[in-house]
């Protein structure tokens, strides 16, 4: 679609239409967002054979599919964990139920949007949370489970930040993604503090590339999380304040690129 055509389409959109989900569906249609029905493994972004031509519109569906990739994984993890007798202590069960409820709502929202716009909803993979036995106790030992859970939560925050960026051109969807990113961040903080309560020296935010990660499969969630340059400005000791590298990395979560997301998620998929 030519830019001038897009502008014409934009002219015809009622701003208030954008405030509701049904309206957004129609807008996407009006912007020509029709994506070829391709079986898409999450994280994969080749929805169009001619990417360059479709770039202005297909990125919305790409972003949603990308976000769904981690939401599916989160939902599967907690569904399985809550069904595993003796894994989660009784005191912590309600928190995980709350988290699972939010994840399933994220999934339902995006599935609705994809369906409504005539896009293919990606299938839910089968997961192996031991990562082919790299984490043999992932679903039997609570500490190991929490480690995996916070890695998946922190990844969720990071992938949703990427989705926000991809959804730049659509104010409603980008706001939805931001609002889910911060919910993911709340979940991540809660899970990390549960692990702290087991005596692990960690906080609710990610410091560096996470020294408390235990094996490679989990460390991969934190690649490039140790960035200390924001808006081209170095944040360590900024303006003479005694703010450390740890504080500088903790103060921002970093978007996770598609390739890094795949590297992290792949070992957990059967």
């Amino acid at each position: 679609m030519k830019l001038t055509d897009i502008l014409k389409e934009i002219e015809s959109i009622q701003p208030e239409t954008f405030e509701n989900a049904t309206g957004r569906r129609n807008i996407l249609k009006s912007l020509g967002m029709k994506v070829a029905a391709v079986a898409v493994p999450f994280g994969a972004v080749s929805l169009f054979s001619n990417k360059a031509a479709a770039k202005t519109t297909d990125i919305l569906a790409e972003a949603i599919v990308f976000a769904l990739g981690i939401s599916y994984m989160q939902s599967a993890l907690y569904t399985k964990a809550l069904a595993t007798t003796g894994l989660i202590p009784a005191t912590d069960v309600d928190g995980f139920k709350e988290i699972l409820k939010d994840k399933n709502q994220h999934i339902a929202f995006w599935v609705y949007q994809l369906t409504a716009t005539g896009n293919t909803v990606p299938g839910v993979p089968t997961y192996d949370f031991t990562a082919k036995n790299a984490l043999p106790k992932a679903m039997t030992d609570y500490g190991t489970f929490l480690t995996l859970a916070h890695a998946i939560e922190d990844t969720g925050v990071r992938m949703y930040l990427t989705a926000v960026k991809m959804l730049l051109s659509n104010k409603a969807f980008r706001t939805d993604a931001v609002n889910m990113a911060t919910t993911n961040a709340r979940h991540a903080a809660h899970v990390r503090m549960l692990r702290r309560n087991l005596g692990v020296d960690m906080m609710a935010w990610v410091v560096g590339t996470e020294a408390n990660s235990i094996v490679g499969e989990i460390k991969k969630a934190y690649q490039n999380e140790d960035n200390t340059t924001q808006l081209k400005i170095n944040t360590v000791g900024i303006n003479g304040f005694a703010v450390s590298f740890s504080a500088a990395t903790g103060a921002f979560d970093e978007p996770m690129a598609d390739t890094d997301a795949k590297i992290f998620m792949t070992p957990f998929i059967d």
Binding site: V164, R174, V178, H187, H190, Q230, F252, P255
Partner: peptide, 25 residues
Amino acid sequence: CRLVIAEEHLVTLAKMSVVDARHSA
């Protein structure tokens, strides 16, 4: 984040907001 126009502004503010959300939690 809903209102900013430049991508780098959107991304930086979102990156900040998720950490404030961690604080809030």
